[in-house]
């Protein structure tokens, strides 16, 4: 079968910006796919930058890292990172990643997805993977809205904020992601905005080297939908807001981390604890079975 013409054009589009690019992230990003699809002023690119930098800093074997994304703006991340990468169904990235981790415990598994994907449609998988303590890093980019579909209310949209499906202000209280993660059993929980990109990167490095279910929430400006519907200016204005209205409180009780509409955002590393991971417990269970105990006759 011949490759259609339009696809061939697409193929060269990425490298058109060509020259002799030696971007330092060349070996962790699929530069043939850049420019990416995210809007001007979007923070997802920053989360990816922080992640790419963290991969290098964490000194892990990149052949043994798999990244899984769901659907949505952040769901496209897997396609831009040069790892074994999977762009799966809406909300099921954690379930897919669980299969990978359980079937091949040597892999380091990263789930990189958005708030709607992980906390709404994938909420069940999120809490159960945390409960099992599957050894994976979950990066949740929180932009307070469903952006790819045009600005619908998300489970993280603050009360009273506008969205296309709540034109009179959001009437549902939002999820507090660190609190949800901690109470479900995550061993590492941190939150940063994408403006605090170096701290975000350091959290990624720590979480990559942490055994167990780690959650890092990256609060990101949505300059096209969340900010436009709520008249918050462009991406830069939102970044300025994060600059002025964030406070670092390491070890803060996750109960206190609710985010009110245009309220103060508390960031930091909140949870760093030890719990046996699913693989540990599974292997322990296996070692306790005597060889002939279960042999069918």
């Amino acid at each position: 079968m011949e490759i259609p013409k339009t696809m061939q054009q697409e193929e060269t589009q990425g490298s058109r910006s060509g020259m002799d690019i030696t971007h330092p992230m060349e070996n962790v990003l699929r530069m043939d796919r850049i420019p990416h699809i995210w809007c001007p002023g979007c923070g997802i690119g920053l989360a990816v930058t922080a992640f790419a930098a963290a991969l290098e800093k964490a000194e892990i074997d990149l052949n043994k890292v798999a990244i899984v994304s769901g659907i949505g703006c952040t769901g496209r991340v897997a396609g831009y990172v040069k790892l074994d990468s999977f762009h799966t169904t809406h909300g099921r990235a954690i379930a897919f990643a669980t299969g990978i981790k359980v079937a091949n415990p040597d892999m380091k598994v990263v789930v990189f997805s958005g708030d709607g994907d992980l906390i709404a449609i994938g909420g069940n998988h999120f809490i159960h993977a945390a409960r099992r303590n599957i050894d994976m890093l979950v990066i949740c980019v929180n932009n307070f809205i469903y952006a790819m579909t045009g600005g619908q209310v998300a489970p993280t949209t603050p009360l009273a904020a506008y969205a296309t499906t709540c034109p009179f202000g959001c009437v549902e209280p939002p999820f507090n992601i660190p609190y949800l993660a901690e109470s479900s059993g995550a061993v590492y929980v941190a939150r940063w905005t994408t403006l605090h990109v170096r701290r975000l990167m350091n959290s990624f490095v720590e979480a990559l080297n942490k055994k167990g279910f780690s959650v890092v929430e990256a609060i990101s400006p949505c300059a096209q939908y969340y900010s436009r519907i709520n008249r918050l200016g462009d991406g830069l204005d939102m970044m300025r807001f994060y600059h002025d209205n964030t406070e670092i409180r390491h070890g803060e009780d996750t109960k206190n981390l609710d985010i009110a509409y245009q309220g103060k955002i508390i960031m930091g590393k909140f949870v760093d604890r030890e719990r046996p991971s699913y693989t540990d417990r599974y292997n322990e269970w296996l070692s306790e079975i005597k060889d002939d105990e279960n042999e069918p006759g």
Binding site: H23, L29, M31, P35, H36, G41, G45, T49
Partner: peptide, 13 residues
Amino acid sequence: HLCEMLCPEFAIY
């Protein structure tokens, strides 16, 4: 390298 880290488009290094 802050501009490199803060560029969402991977356009500066």
